[in-house]
């Protein structure tokens, strides 16, 4: 069965998130985001720092409610769930946080960090904790004796792997990874990616994978959403990522990669203009302030996501 015929696990409909700043100004972190993820699929998300990726997945994993719009998990609207219902729904959705400190205290022992979700749902007894922790540690290539360590006594990449082990403990249907590989050297990274691929094949896990390394996303995700200033500006099948035709912002990402074969005597390309602020979103295209192809129309009319090829959507007037 091709992926497009499978059950939709997660659907975001016009999801918008507005935060208030310390001074009470509205900050538009997600601007009517529409995305779907199907069973056994990996959706990659890449985009500028501060463009709203973590905000989106915090809503997708039911940690924060959207300001407006809906999140559907297997067809059920979960945006308004509370209490026991919310707890029960969350069991099937696990998240590995960008910052391991958000998920666990550095003063906790590794075995308790890893087994906490299992204990919360009453799935293992206290006496099983050590053994289960060792099993999960082995999955992320950490030695069994780390079970008794404190999280603060580990390196950055080791802590990140503890976060992954913890999220895998409950064998979730949907696993959301926020920038989990960036703290790892490329060879451990490759093995963690292989582990996730294996779990996906065996257990049909659905994944959302936020990652700045677009070369890795291209290899790992079935589809990738490119975000910019709270908006999804492109949805592209994995291997076509960064291959033209694509959104001008995606092209900028492509050109800013540090490549081993690049000409080191030339300065790396970067977008030199000032970054736009979600406190002051331009009326037309979100990328208009920095785009080399910007026309008058771009400054007034916001482009919608449109199909340009099967499975490939772009929000840019160049593709009308």
């Amino acid at each position: 069965m091709s992926i497009n015929e499978r059950e939709i696990i997660l659907e975001a409909r016009n999801v918008t998130k507005v935060f208030r700043t310390s001074k009470g100004r509205p900050l538009l972190a997600n601007d009517s985001v529409n995305l779907t993820v199907r069973r056994g699929e990996t959706l990659g998300i890449a985009g500028e720092s501060g463009c709203g990726k973590s905000t989106f997945i915090r809503m997708a994993t039911m940690l924060d409610p959207p300001t407006s719009g809906q999140i559907l998990f297997r067809g059920q609207d979960v945006s308004g769930l509370r209490g026991e219902k919310l707890r029960a729904a969350r069991r099937h959705v696990q998240m590995v946080f960008q910052d391991p400190g958000e998920a666990f205290s550095p003063r906790m022992k590794v075995k308790n960090i890893i087994c906490e979700p299992l204990r919360n749902f009453g799935l293992i007894s206290r006496s099983q904790v050590r053994k289960k922790a060792e099993e999960l540690l082995a999955m992320v290539e950490l030695p069994p004796e780390y079970a008794e360590r404190y999280a603060r006594d580990m390196s950055g990449g080791q802590r990140q792997r503890v976060g992954i082990a913890r999220a895998l403990a409950l064998e979730p249907e949907l696993l959301v990874c926020d920038e989990v590989t960036s703290a790892l050297d490329v060879s451990v990274q490759k093995r963690i990616v292989d582990l996730l691929l294996k779990l996906q094949r065996e257990k049909n896990i659905t994944m959302i994978f936020i990652c700045h390394d677009i070369a890795l996303v291209r290899a790992f995700a079935h589809r990738t959403a490119i975000m910019y200033l709270g908006n999804v500006v492109e949805i592209v099948p994995g291997r076509q990522l960064g291959i033209s035709p694509c959104h001008p912002y995606t092209e900028a990402l492509r050109n800013a990669l540090f490549d081993l074969d690049m000409d080191f005597s030339k300065p790396i390309e970067a977008i030199e203009s000032e970054a736009p602020s979600p406190l002051d979103v331009p009326p037309g295209c979100p990328f208009s302030g920095r785009c080399g192809h910007c026309s008058d129309r771009c400054r007034t009319e916001k482009p919608a996501l449109r199909d340009i090829a099967p499975g490939h959507q772009v929000a840019c007037h160049l593709f009308d």
Binding site: T42, D185, V186, S187, Q189, K190, V193, D194, L197, Q200, D213, I214, A215, L216, R218, A219, F220, A221, H222, R223, P237, G238, R239, G242, R254, L257, D259, L260
Partner: peptide, 28 residues
């Protein structure tokens, strides 16, 4: 380091770097 690595670990690292032209891991 990039073009004449000697240690096997350095070689392993260089080989594991994902590239825009490299293999893809999933059926798309």
């Amino acid at each position: 380091i990039l073009h004449h690595p000697k240690d096997p670990y350095t070689k392993e690292l260089l080989a594991a770097i994902p590239t825009m032209e490299g293999e893809v891991y999933v059926d798309q």
